[in-house]
């Protein structure tokens, strides 16, 4: 079953034409990576899916429903979670409060939060600590956990390894693997090797359109069809 489908989507920031007819689809249970150079439209693709930057043309379908033009909170309430670039945790709230905001619509918010703590035990230890006082890696864990609570079917993850030390990146990768066990995922990641390790399939984006797509198995950044789109 197709979880997310973007069909010939055109998205603008003001007069800047960012997505120029981008199409992709994500099947239930898989991890799909969006790769490409900086500024080609990967983050905008995630924002378009969630309705934060709505498309001017094209269609966005989520779990078979046309969600084009819906408000972001309406799309999110249908089960689409977001782990944004630079984490964007609520730094003045505690870890627990961050999770509670995300679990607001759950039938049993406490059970959901307990599940998140089970997956990320480090967060449990810091539940009363201000999110702004956490390390970068801990904040990334919190951002992932926050994106997962609320029974989300799909998690949009934007640059999870950005600005983190290699050891912390490994922990984040493990967290994403754990999260993907019961959540479909779209991953935007600059680190090509990491993206290929994590994902089942990839879309290579350039100038707002998909230029290559396929299975990740055996794909390296040295492949000629990939390399020319990743180097400046």
């Amino acid at each position: 079953m197709t979880t997310l489908e973007l069909d010939e989507v055109h998205t603008y920031y003001g007069e800047s034409h960012i997505l120029q007819g981008l199409s992709l689809s994500v099947e239930a249970g898989e991890i799909v990576a969006l790769v490409g150079r900086n500024g080609v439209g990967k983050t905008t693709t995630l924002r378009t899916a969630l309705g934060l930057t709505p498309p001017r043309e094209g269609t966005v379908r989520f779990d078979g429903e046309d969600v084009t033009g819906m408000e972001p909170h309406e799309i999110a309430a249908r089960g689409m979670g977001w782990v944004p670039e630079e984490r964007r945790v609520f730094s003045h709230l505690t870890v627990e409060e961050n999770l509670r905001v995300a679990a607001h619509s759950a039938a049993d918010p406490s059970a959901q939060i307990a599940e998140a703590y089970e997956l990320f035990p480090a967060l449990d230890r810091f539940s009363d600590k201000g999110a702004g006082d956490l390390s970068g890696g801990q904040q990334q864990m919190l951002a992932i956990a926050r994106g997962m609570v609320g029974d989300n079917d799909l998690l949009l993850v934007d640059e999870p390894s950005e600005g983190l030390a290699p050891q912390i990146v490994e922990d984040v990768v493990e967290a994403l693997r754990a999260a993907s066990a019961d959540t479909t995922m779209v991953l935007v990641e600059q680190n090509f090797r990491l993206a290929m390790d994590l994902a089942d399939r990839f879309y290579l984006v350039d100038h707002g359109v998909v230029v290559e797509a396929g299975e990740t198995a055996g794909v390296t950044s040295e492949d000629e069809r990939i390399r020319r789109y990743l180097t400046a």
């Binding site: 909170h73 309430a77 944004p84 964007r88 609520f90 730094s91 409060e97 995300a102 607001h104 609320g150």
Partner: peptide, 13 residues
């Protein structure tokens, strides 16, 4: 939460 990041609050439904 919204005082810090309104867009993020919307993205949480």
């Amino acid at each position: 939460a919204g005082s810090e990041d309104t867009e993020m609050v919307q993205a949480l439904g």
